[in-house]
Simulated assay, not measured.
Amino acid sequence: MNPSAISTQTLSQENEVIAMTQTIQEQAMINGGIIRPLVYIPHNTIRVVGRLCFGPDFNNEGFVIGIDPLIDDVINLSGLARFSDAFPFIRYIPGLWGSFRQATEILDRVMSILQSEITHYQSSKSPCTTCYLHFLLSHGYPMETIISILFEMFLLSVDSTSSTIAWALAFLIRNPEIQQKLFKEVSGGDEKRERVTVYQVNKMSYLQAGVNEVFRMKPIAPLAIPHKTVKDTTLKGLKIDKGTAVIVNIYAVHHDPKVWDHPEQFMPERFLNENARNVSVAMEQSFLPFGAGMRICAGMDLGKLQVGLTLANLINKFEWVAADGDGPNMTDDYTAILRMKEPLVAGIKLRTNLGTTLS
């Protein structure tokens, strides 16, 4: 996940995002200008993570298509897992036994699809020596551990990235003036760009502010990743025993009115550099979409880049509008990832002819 490894993927990332926008355009033309973006966005992230894990030559579309629903199945079960962490007795409630059996079946499928890719890597005449799998194999970890770590890479990156992009599009549909301001930046003003590059994304202050605001309002993991205390400790006078599961309510921190002005409003401007002098220490310490400290998310830089690059090109190519009069449903569906309760359905218009809906 280091910058040099990510930078080697720049051209591939850009090409895949452009290919995705073309697919979205073609599907929208078939469906009267209506599109479900979450059908297309996750596969791009799977390919990016696949190249980091298995090497830059990774191109197994069967793996991409196969692991996508597995990630979805695990996330759908994750809410139960959280309750099981907090209240271990629910494991013994008969009505929930089926869910635990389902988890075992999913594990078998995960083991199968990743073992197949690992076997392919090991049988290669010139396997990549700079990928994550090579690192894991060279340290002699048990195969079950390697598979678990690799799947965690996909699990924690694919749906979180896709959901963040969907939330961002929903906010922009509901705030067309912000969408137009963002379009002016990503398109270079009056100049029509064919694509937005990684280099350009890194210099777009309003885009970065918008992405941060989405992370604030809809944090990827609203209760963070559970941790455990490694020894007896205290927190503000409260005794916490060794081995206690610790869950942090990041969503509440991101919506604390004592820290954030109008926390329920989508306001990218709060993160703009020109407002930096007004950003309090409390705000800086309370923005924790990727956690904090030594256990901060290792994929933070890759995740922010993937969200920014994808969103910039989707806004550069299309104007996003409500598919119906009510606009996107912003209700949360809480699992381990803060998803939309109803997957985003949107209307799009080509930027080359803003008055014409795709049909």
Score class of each variant (00 low, 15 high):
G325C: 06
G355N: 15
S187F: 05
L182M: 02
H43M: 09
R109N: 02
S359Q: 15
H139D: 09
P42E: 01
A336F: 14
P219A: 02
H262E: 15
R295F: 05
D72N: 13
L302E: 02
S126T: 09
I41E: 00
Q13I: 15
Q13F: 15
D72R: 11
L350A: 06
D190V: 14
V253C: 07
G140K: 01
N278V: 05
A276P: 06
M294I: 13
L156Y: 04
R270P: 13
V253Y: 11
I220T: 08
Q13E: 11
I24C: 08
E152T: 14
H43K: 15
N249T: 05
K203I: 07
L169R: 00
Y251H: 13
G66S: 15
K236P: 07
L155E: 01
R339K: 15
E14C: 03
G95L: 03
E117R: 00
E16Q: 13
S123A: 06
E16L: 12
L288C: 06
N313I: 10
V39E: 14
M283G: 02
N329W: 07
A282Y: 10
C128Y: 03
G140D: 04
R82T: 02
A209T: 01
I35R: 01
G293H: 06
E191A: 03
S162P: 11
A276H: 08
M29I: 12
A298F: 04
I113N: 04
T244A: 12
Q25K: 14
E269P: 10
S187P: 09
R109Y: 05
V201E: 10
V17A: 05
S7N: 15
N329I: 14
S205P: 07
M330T: 11
S126R: 06
I30T: 14
K203T: 13
P37C: 11
T21K: 06
A86P: 07
M153G: 08
V186F: 09
D159W: 11
R216Q: 08
I65F: 10
L96D: 05
W260T: 02
D261Q: 08
Y92D: 08
I147E: 00
T331Q: 15
I93N: 07
A282T: 07
E342A: 13
S112P: 05
N249P: 10
V49P: 09
E269G: 12
F54I: 04
V345I: 14
W320P: 02
I106Y: 09
P328N: 00
D301P: 06
M330S: 02
D256H: 05
R36G: 06
T104Y: 07
N278G: 12
H139I: 01
T234Y: 09
N273P: 09
I46M: 03
T10F: 02
E14W: 06
M20G: 10
N175Q: 10
T310P: 13
T119A: 02
A221R: 03
Q27W: 08
P88G: 03
E117T: 03
W167V: 01
F215P: 04
T161I: 04
C53Q: 07
K349W: 10
N31L: 11
I90P: 08
S157I: 00
V49L: 05
T129I: 13
G210R: 00
L77G: 05
S148R: 13
A292V: 12
T356Q: 15
G188M: 02
D332P: 08
Y40N: 02
R82E: 13
A282P: 06
T23K: 05
E61L: 12
K228V: 11
K181D: 15
K239M: 12
F266E: 08
